[in-house]
Design a protein around this nucleic acid. Structure first.
Lengths: 332, 332
DNA sequence: TTGTATGCGTTATCAA
DNA sequence: TTGATAACGCATACAA
């Protein structure tokens, strides 16, 4: 086995007794090319014998882009769920011969500089990519650009993580448990604002649809003192809140801790539901009811959108509600 | 602004009134080339004016490898910490113009097939890469190969995640709290075996060094029933275990839950320490003492090893104990 | 010190 | 149906 030099298409051509072109045609199954079965077999046989793998670098240069998808991440710390999605997405894309590759959004760094020296096949961002940028990318041979979240203006143009559905589901569950007055515990901080806003909007809508009052919104960090203060407010004389939808599990268990320090019990005094299905939530006291996001499914959806866009370009479909589900434990 | 065609080195050369070669020399700061400041400036100026970015695809083809580092992940679900390391590593490598790119280890899929169609600059695996494979990679222009964990045979050849130190630190803390009889709660399952083994070894060594008895090892999953059974064993008449080092936070809170269901209190009846510093651990009852791994530092170390290897190739140094630290809360 | 010319391995155009 | 051959954009050996 001569390991020295890389096996190229020329080698294959030579062994098969055809030209490079033919090899290329066979391997890429170029349409509208009628290659007789006999030649085809001969080529494929040579490929196997020589253990030939096309050089992706050369292919990339020729085609103008690599088999790579760039995922531009927001600047804040990623949670378990986003990590899970990235992981699953990597795997999904790999099935289509694509590699996922992530970059961090940076203040003052234009999106262009992120993909220009990567020449990816596609770009996925969290927010919408403006028209100008889209044009630049098209010209540069970057074929797809999708957004995970979307602005109000173009609700149908992006594939949307089911944030609003999460808020709705939380409220629906609380309502099903008989709670009529509901609070929303929003995580403070500019970084997660987008997610908070979307989930809260979903919660609001559910309240409306179910004939409940507007949720009482409190902004707080996952700190015992703040959580305790919030609990006091909800359980005070003048408030009739009996159920709390928290932005995530961390906030939810902080609230549970705040309740403990006030001598209150969940779910009797206050029911609490989180989001994320953190593993530790199973063992909180009491075990935490939460909303789980199906990372596999979300990733599949994103991957499919990208792959589809790569070979045609239909508008992405918004995510269905199947991507999320309730995990009911004792805190509600 | 003519956005149609990509700006190439030739364009820059033309504008600067020099040849492509000179442009290349200036941009790559090719050693042993004395280019007068005046020309250099002219070239750089043209680069700025044209907003030129070298095409990484062409460069990659020419050099034989891309500016990519392949991280081969094990087949089991990644925890928060590994995700964090990946995230940090991505960022670190980006600073050196490298992109991190992950692949999943698969039964029956040879390592070679993972990098062959990616042509990365380097490969990082969790386990050692054997000599043969190293040779293949060298021949293919892949310059570095490092392992995060290492077999016993080559303890100095890989850069090692500080697993043993974690186990040691747990036991040291328990001993410092006065516990003389210690148990180790190992997570069951083949997938995490490597980590369990390494951490347990560290725990054992610490016991020895501190003059304690061997830790009483129990294998279990993070399930309430199993945790309760384990707690019963430790707290029974014939056992004198007063402190438990758990493989991770999830297992630790499961044990705390098991204690609750037995009417026991931490840390009075049994002290528990975990690993990972899961956010929810702050709000368990009681709040969980744990070992934190400094993902930034670990990632820096890995990145540095890779970059170093890329431009020279010295043996990686094992990780220092600074990468981990104790977070003391009320469970011990 | 700088320019010319060649090759990296593919794909695609055009002839044959 | 297949084969030459020209790009793709860059880096370098070698020449000047």
């Amino acid at each position: 086995m001569n390991a020295r030099r890389r096996v190229t298409a020329s080698d294959v051509a030579q062994v098969a007794g055809v030209s490079k072109t033919t090899v290329s045609y066979v391997l890429n199954e170029t349409p509208h090319q009628k290659i007789p079965e006999e030649t085809r077999e001969r080529v494929l046989d040579a490929v196997r014998r020589l253990n030939y793998t096309p050089n992706s670098l050369a292919r990339a240069l020729r085609k103008g882009h690599s088999d790579t998808v760039l995922l531009v991440l927001p600047d804040w710390p990623l949670g378990r769920v986003v990590s899970g999605i990235i992981e699953a997405l990597t795997e999904q894309l790999e099935r289509h011969g694509l590699s996922l590759l992530t970059r961090r959004e940076r203040e003052g760094v234009p999106l262009a500089s992120m993909w220009r020296d990567l020449s990816p096949a596609g770009v996925v961002a969290f927010h919408d990519v403006d028209e100008h940028e889209q044009g630049l990318m098209r010209d540069a041979g970057v074929h797809v650009a999708t957004a995970l979240l979307t602005s109000d203006r173009s609700p149908a143009e992006a594939l949307v993580l089911p944030q609003e559905l999460i808020g709705s589901l939380q409220v629906q569950h609380l309502a099903a448990r008989g709670h009529r007055r509901v609070a929303y515990a929003a995580l403070r901080g500019p970084r997660t604002q987008v997610f908070v806003d979307l989930r809260l909007r979903g919660a609001r809508r559910a309240c409306m649809e179910l004939g409940l009052e507007e949720p009482e919104v409190v902004e707080l960090n996952a700190e015992l003192a703040e959580a305790t203060a919030a609990v006091r407010g909800w359980h005070g004389r003048d408030s009739r809140v009996t159920g709390v939808a928290a932005y995530n599990d961390e906030l939810a268990v902080a609230i549970l801790a705040g309740m403990r320090s006030e001598g209150l019990r969940a779910p009797e005094d206050l029911a609490v539901i989180g989001v994320d299905d953190e593993p530790l939530g199973r063992f909180s006291c009491p075990p935490l009811t939460t909303v789980q996001q199906n990372e596999q499914m979300i990733a599949s959806h994103i991957a499919q959108t990208i792959v589809e866009g790569l070979k045609g370009g239909s508008a992405p479909r918004p995510m269905t509600s199947e991507a999320i589900s309730l995990i009911i434990r004792e805190s509600t």
